[in-house]
Design a protein around this nucleic acid. Structure first.
Length: 891
RNA sequence: GGGCGAUUGGCUCAGCUGGUUAGAGCGCACGGUUCACAUCCGUGAGGUCACUGGUUCGAAUCCAGUAUCGCCCACCA
């Protein structure tokens, strides 16, 4: 792979050629790895990369976080901070098993046919194949993470942190095991958390069913019935009561009697409970405590039996008699059919409802009664909430703090066990007497903690942890916690947690809770939530819609810098963004612009290089000052994490100031026939310094093109790069002295040039034609500025000759006159056209309207008395300026 | 059912704690091929800042309400 030499640069930036070799250079330089010792007095800036799923392929979500985090890290690295960006991948137990199950399925195997041990062997083999893939894809995006510290949530270091953290939770009484109703996915065959149970609006059927009451003779009455409504008739098999509201007159007499549950012929009590909504359905509810969260609570209140009728595959259990073994939906139809046959189906109608689905596989989730491990979330949430409330951790955008708070305030205990194989096994051991021993030792406990029975007699828990448990420890488990390692001391707590709002609860909240519990400190001081990337028209990207933009393909075509620029520009934290072809084109064009600005500077190098001589011209003083301003702005915006603002202002400086105006003025100086080699050298160095400054500003966002340009510049003149061969490790410049006089002088000249160009366009003067240009200075100071800028006026307004007259001269103005704060200007010939007169009249009208408006404003005493003095003063100045211009227009 | 967010030229978005004549990119119109770049340069047209009311000398910006769209949370059969 060869990169172009500076002598023969193509006019197009060739990303596919440049970028891989640049990345190699960075890796070889070791720039991404923190020095052995932190620099003295350095601030710390640490980001823990959100670990992508080990099985996943790079998508735009990754591209967004890589871009944002890389930009932050590169900025702080250039600032000389003690910087670490720590990458890793997540074992994603449920997602990984989902993928592997499919793969072994193609090989004719199943989880059951392999068994736990062989399945896990197969999984590790799969991990070896996929583990490095996404990291290498991130290289193409320019991710400057410290790959030497790459972590995996299944590494021994993480495994130990999981054991220790859980042991501490257990010892603190914040972990417990108990029977409860949990969300169960019959396809994944595991418990899932509330968060993984996603609700969707659906239309179901609401059946009304008659239950026969038990008569005084102890037999089911034929005519005495109570009707209940249900959307899940199959759960009738597990009914253990019928409930009515205690104040419901319709049913008061029935409370205390019994009803007969059809098919299973179970006699159940009719109970009264205020949770029953009288207005819904028939006002009487069938109670299935083992399969419904409301019913479960009611069952506990009334001491009802809890009968499980669905097994782990959501098939009917033996409780269902001859329905046993039937799938839940087949059973539903069968139950309905039998009720109908028996004449006990009172009706059915469509019913809008919300149904929980498994986040991973989409299967309808069943509430299922089982013995599970839980984390007691309340006390943990309290601290995590206080951290944000009291400002020790800040969430951007800040309105997300309310969302976070609401969740923390209403938190449920976390069902943390999973009936899966791939993941961290819960370190709990059971002895035959029912004692539980939790151990953080790698080999488990020596003996039962309660009765001392030796470990050989104990059996280990087979459940594993929810993936998010190990993820919740990520900010410190990656640094060697619980050991007091040098990395932990040096890099923890971290700085910014940058991630998507969709995992605020899954991940950010858990990191806060577990981080505070384990380390007594907030794991990061800022949470930055980016928006979701959508496609054209604001549509969510999906493979089925075919509107997926593959970031790697984009990188291949137009380069990572273009993609990164497109992903940051015009976005706002937490707000969804659209990645459109037009936006990508914009990024590509800007990258190319930078490339060509570099080509200009390199091509303009005087040969041989001499020593600079002479005083800096207006253009030189101006660009130095504007660069300073751009540096200051970029610094402020990056410090405030205003990534889009930074991208925008850097773009404006590079394109609208450096390229559009400075380069054009520099050409004038460099190509002047009477310029000495020393003067040319002086101008070139300013141009080179300006380019270097621009590259420094843009490097965090667009590392590749800036690095390549920097290396050419370094080759051309190491003084321009402060002798630093690699931009990645060059210093950030935060901006300094401004030169207000040059800035306003050039602003005024630019204004005048624009007016003249407008005039030319309106009056149809061919763009390339040279015209005799007359400028009458507004005052002595303007005259001096015009003298300074004479050469620029000549080139930029195509004036030849340019005649600068002192203030007060040439009283008669032709039609084609334009004014600016510097004075009045016109082309000496062809200036009496109707178009020119129209242009002058329009300008005069415009000035008069402005003057009127300002006069009225300043005549308003409530304005002059109540507005701040500075504002009033500014308006007065504007009025004076407009009045002066109007006088200039008339001569 | 609760909570949050959005609404600015044809499109995509800026607009910080209220202060000129509301900006940019794309698109559009017109003009431009010698010396960095046509992935470019120049010029221009195009907006009563969703609506109603309020606060203020002054509101796209602050407050209240309305409408439309979007997102999140929620165990009513």
């Amino acid at each position: 792979m060869t990169t172009p030499t500076r002598r023969d640069l193509p006019p197009r930036y060739e990303a596919a050629v440049v970028e891989p070799s640049i990345y190699e250079r960075w890796l070889a330089s070791g720039a991404f790895t923190p020095a052995a010792e932190p620099p003295a007095d350095a601030e710390r800036f640490v980001i823990i990369m959100p670990p992508p799923n080990v099985t996943g392929a790079l998508h735009n979500g990754h591209a967004v976080f890589v871009t944002l985090e890389d930009t932050m890290i590169r900025y702080h690295r250039m600032r000389g901070d003690d910087t670490l960006w720590l990458p890793g991948v997540d074992h994603a137990s449920i997602a990984a098993q989902f993928v592997l199950d499919r793969i072994i399925g193609e090989e004719g195997e199943t989880r059951a046919s392999l068994g736990r041990e062989r399945y896990l062997e197969r999984m590790w083999q799969f991990m070896d194949e996929t583990r490095g893939v996404i990291g290498r894809q991130m290289h193409r995006l320019g991710a400057s993470a410290d790959w030497t510290r790459g972590r995996f949530t299944m590494d021994p270091i993480s495994a130990r942190a999981v054991r220790v953290a859980f042991k501490r939770l257990w010892d603190a009484g914040l972990a417990y095991r108990g029977e409860a109703l949990v969300n169960w996915c019959p396809r994944c065959r595991t418990t899932i958390s509330d968060l993984e149970n996603v609700h969707r609006d659906e239309t179901g059927t609401l059946w009304t069913v008659r239950y026969h009451l038990i008569g005084p003779d102890g037999e089911a009455s034929l005519d005495e019935t109570i009707s209940v409504a249900t959307t899940r008739p199959e759960t009738i098999l597990g009914d253990t009561a019928v409930a009515v509201h205690p104040d419901d007159a319709r049913y008061r007499a029935l409370v205390g009697r019994e009803a007969l549950i059809p098919i299973v012929n179970r006699r159940v009590p009719i109970i009264a409970d205020p949770a029953v909504e009288r207005a819904f359905g028939t006002g009487a509810v069938k109670i299935t405590p083992a399969h419904d969260f409301d019913d479960y609570e009611m069952g506990k209140r009334h001491g009802l039996p809890m009968v499980s009728v669905l097994d782990e595959d959501a098939r009917i259990t033996e409780v269902g008699g001859d329905l046993a073994g039937m799938d839940r939906y087949d059973a539903r139809s069968e139950v309905v059919a039998r009720l109908e046959a028996a004449g006990d189906l009172a009706g059915s109608r469509e019913h809008p409802m919300v149904i929980g689905h498994c986040d991973r596989c989409g299967t309808v989730v069943e509430p299922r009664l089982s013995v599970q491990w839980f984390i007691r979330a309340g006390p943990l949430a309290e601290r995590a909430l206080a951290s944000v409330r009291e400002g020790r951790t800040r969430i951007i955008p800040d309105h997300q703090e309310k969302v976070y708070a609401h969740w923390m305030e209403n938190i449920h205990d976390w069902a943390v066990g999973r009936q899966l194989w791939w993941g961290h096994r819960i370190p709990a051991w059971y002895c035959p007497d029912g004692h539980i021993t939790v151990s953080d030792a790698e080999d488990g406990p020596d003996a039962c903690a309660a009765c001392g029975l030796p470990s050989a007699e104990l059996t280990r828990e087979t459940d594993i942890f929810d993936t998010w448990f190990s993820s919740g420890l990520w900010p410190f488990s990656t640094m060697g916690w619980p050991d007091d390692t040098p990395d932990l001391r040096r890099f923890y707590p971290t700085s910014v947690m940058e991630t998507g709002p969709d995992i605020l609860f899954f991940w950010v909240a858990r990191m806060m809770m577990l981080g505070l519990f384990c380390t007594d400190v907030e794991p990061f001081h800022t949470v930055y939530l980016h928006g979701i990337v959508r496609g054209e028209g604001g549509v969510k990207m999906s493979k089925t819609k075919g509107n997926v933009v593959d970031p790697l393909e984009v990188v291949e075509q137009i380069g990572a810098d273009a993609l990164r620029f497109a992903l940051v520009t015009g976005t706002s934290p937490g707000m969804d963004q659209r990645l459109t072809a037009a936006k990508l084109d914009g990024g590509r064009n800007f990258t190319n612009k930078l490339w060509n600005a570099t080509r200009f500077v390199l091509g303009a190098r005087p040969e041989p290089a001499g020593e600079p001589e002479g005083e800096p011209t207006l253009a030189e003083r101006w660009i130095a000052s504007r660069l300073s301003g751009a540096q200051e702005r970029a610094t402020r915006q990056l410090d405030a994490l205003d990534m889009s603002g930074y991208a925008g202002s850097a773009y404006d400086f590079a394109w609208s100031e450096y390229c559009d105006w400075f380069i054009e003025m520099a050409k004038v100086e460099l190509r002047r026939e009477d310029a000495t080699p020393g003067e040319r050298e002086r101008v070139w160095r300013v141009a080179a310094d300006g380019l270097a400054g621009m590259l420094r500003i843009l490097h965090p966002l667009m590392p590749f093109v800036t690095e390549q340009a920097w290396s050419f510049l370094h080759e051309a003149d190491p003084r321009a790069t402060d002798g630093e061969p690699l931009l990645v490790s060059a210093a950030w410049h935060a901006g300094g002295r401004r030169d207000d006089a040059s800035e306003s002088a050039v602003d005024a000249l630019v204004d005048l040039v624009r007016g003249l160009r407008h005039l030319r366009t309106e009056t149809g003067v061919p763009a390339g034609e040279w015209r005799h240009l007359v400028v009458v200075a507004a005052d002595d100071r303007a005259a001096a500025t015009l003298e300074d800028g004479r050469r620029y006026l000549e080139a930029l307004a195509r004036g030849r000759p340019v005649e600068v007259l002192p203030a007060g001269s040439a009283s008669a103005r032709p039609a084609g006159v334009v004014t600016s704060s510097l004075g009045a200007a016109w082309y000496a010939a062809d200036d009496e056209s109707p178009e020119a007169a129209a242009r002058r009249d329009a300008q005069a009208d415009h000035l008069r309207r402005g003057i009127e408006r300002l006069r009225a404003l300043l005549a308003n005493s409530s304005f002059t008395e109540r507005a701040p003095a500075a504002v009033v003063e500014r308006e007065r100045g504007r009025l004076a300026e407009l009045e002066a211009q109007l006088r200039q227009l008339d001569g």
